[in-house]
């Protein structure tokens, strides 16, 4: 059903950063979603929307290569999932550090830069090695970018959820990724901060041709910045521009239920009639 959307995004002429073809995933014996087709253009800012438990985080983890597909194919930055991990900045959902963790925010960000390299830095290496100095500068730069400089040197366990979240966004950004997969990065931020972070991500996406895929619960604070939306519901997904996807007709088709989308006078979208519980596909559909 999303063929029309796929071809419309290819008509944009941009290369595709994330592609899914007939993808389906089974977790815990249950098919979460199936027949998912996506074509996310390079450099676009995309929100992944949908009710709780529909499989948004699972989609992100499938793109990272940590969950295998049941059927279909995923291509991430032109490669199979997991093969481009060094070019992806990932922020997992709702991760908070133990209150007692005595590691500074700046060290957490630094791990995003070179934490996967073998070996161990000895004390004071930034005074002798040019590479270590460049790394420290890059870390300071992204911390400044997300506005976390004033608390980056405090132990991360003692920071507020929103402060931790900003440092984690810095961590996902630090290696200049070509694709950012952010699972609810705006969680635990207040409304003005949600808008500010979304603006920041949109700017990075536009200036550096970084593709940003961001799972979100509320589309409204980020709506002005979005290029595209992936809406997961009813065991499948639709992709397109926000105005194409967040409509009564598209969502009704997706949920197989009567859905209405109202627009308030200030441009906010309100979805009415979403079924309470996520629509579960049972294992009976496996053969499809």
């Amino acid at each position: 059903m999303s063929e029309a959307m796929t071809s419309s995004s290819e008509a944009l002429g941009a290369a595709v950063a994330v592609r899914a073809e007939g993808a389906s995933v089974i977790l815990g014996g249950r098919m979460l979603w199936s027949a998912v087709d996506l074509a996310v253009p390079t450099g676009s800012f995309v929100a992944v929307l949908g009710p709780n438990g529909v499989g948004k985080s699972t989609l992100v983890r499938a793109l990272l290569g940590s969950i295998p597909l049941r059927t279909g194919r995923l291509t991430v930055l032109g490669r199979p999932p997991g093969a481009a991990s060094h070019e992806i900045g990932y922020l997992p959902q709702r991760r908070s550090f133990e209150p007692g963790l005595r590691v500074r925010g700046i060290d957490i960000v630094r791990l995003g830069l070179d934490g996967d390299r073998w070996g161990m830095p000895l004390m004071g290496s930034s005074r002798v090695s040019r590479r270590a100095r460049a790394a420290a500068e890059r870390v300071a730069e992204v911390i400044e970018l997300v506005g976390a400089s004033s608390y980056a040197r405090r132990p991360i366990g003692g920071l507020s959820g929103g402060e931790q979240q900003r440092l984690l966004i810095a961590q996902a950004l630090v290696r200049r990724p070509r694709l950012m997969l952010l699972d609810e990065p705006l969680d635990s931020l207040d409304l003005p901060n949600q808008g500010a972070i979304a603006a920041l991500l949109a700017r990075i996406s536009r200036e550096h041709q970084v593709t940003v895929m961001m799972v979100a619960h509320d589309v409204n604070p980020i709506l002005p910045y979005l290029d595209r939306v992936v809406y997961l519901a009813g065991g499948s997904a639709v992709e397109g521009s926000p105005r194409e996807v967040i409509t009564g007709a598209t969502l009704s088709r997706l949920y197989s239920a009567a859905i209405e989308v109202l627009e308030t006078s200030d441009g906010r979208l309100v979805v009415v009639g979403e079924p309470e519980a996520p629509h579960h596909h049972s294992a009976r559909h496996d053969g499809q």
């Binding site: 990932y90 590691v103 961590q171």
Partner: peptide
């Protein structure tokens, strides 16, 4: 990395 941030570390390979 794996000790303080296991999920991101895993995603990084």
């Amino acid at each position: 990395f794996a000790s303080v941030d296991p999920y991101v570390a895993e995603a990084r390979g």
